[in-house]
């Protein structure tokens, strides 16, 4: 029952089959093998949240996920949750509220916030803070990120 030499899963809504050895990390597969570079590598050790993707809809650290375990599952990256034209409500709110400065943490926050608002369309401020408490931002002090998520939540009424 050794690792499959081709890994099959749904990536951003499309089925894919890619060569993948057992020890491949999902973040490496996405960024290096599949050139999906929107997902960022900030620490490689679960300590920053820059690498957040959705696995079966749940925000997950791709740097601590074995790619092989994605067999048969679905993975959505920032590329996948961005509409083909324009921006999603969360993305628009991040731009308008200045919630992105250097932007390196931003894909992770957007993925986390998107899942939050999908499951809890009207989160309290405390719920927002808790939801983003695994994503590190060194630029914004989080203030405008929280404001942006609050505003996106209002918009999706």
């Amino acid at each position: 029952m050794s690792s499959p030499d081709r890994l099959r899963f749904r990536l951003n809504g499309q089925p894919v089959a890619v060569p993948c050895e057992g020890a491949r990390i999902l973040l490496d597969l996405l960024r290096e093998d599949l050139s999906l570079t929107g997902t960022k590598r900030g620490c490689d050790l679960g300590t920053c949240g820059c690498c957040t993707v959705l696995v079966d809809g749940r925000p997950t650290l791709s740097c601590l996920t074995l790619a092989a375990l994605m067999e048969g599952r679905s993975v959505d990256t920032i590329e996948g949750i961005s509409p083909p034209q324009g921006l999603s409500p969360v993305q628009r709110a991040f731009v308008e509220h200045g919630a992105t400065q250097c932007g390196f943490c931003t894909p992770g926050f957007v993925v986390t916030a998107t899942a939050l608002l999908r499951d809890h369309p009207h989160p309290s401020r405390e719920e927002i803070v808790r939801a983003i408490s695994g994503n590190l931002c060194r630029c914004t002090g989080y203030t405008k990120i929280i404001e942006a998520i609050e505003s996106a939540a209002r918009e999706t009424v």
Binding site: G46, T60, L61, S133, G134
Partner: peptide, 9 residues
Amino acid sequence: IATPLVRAS
């Protein structure tokens, strides 16, 4: 424990 992202896995 840790963060929501760690708790997810």
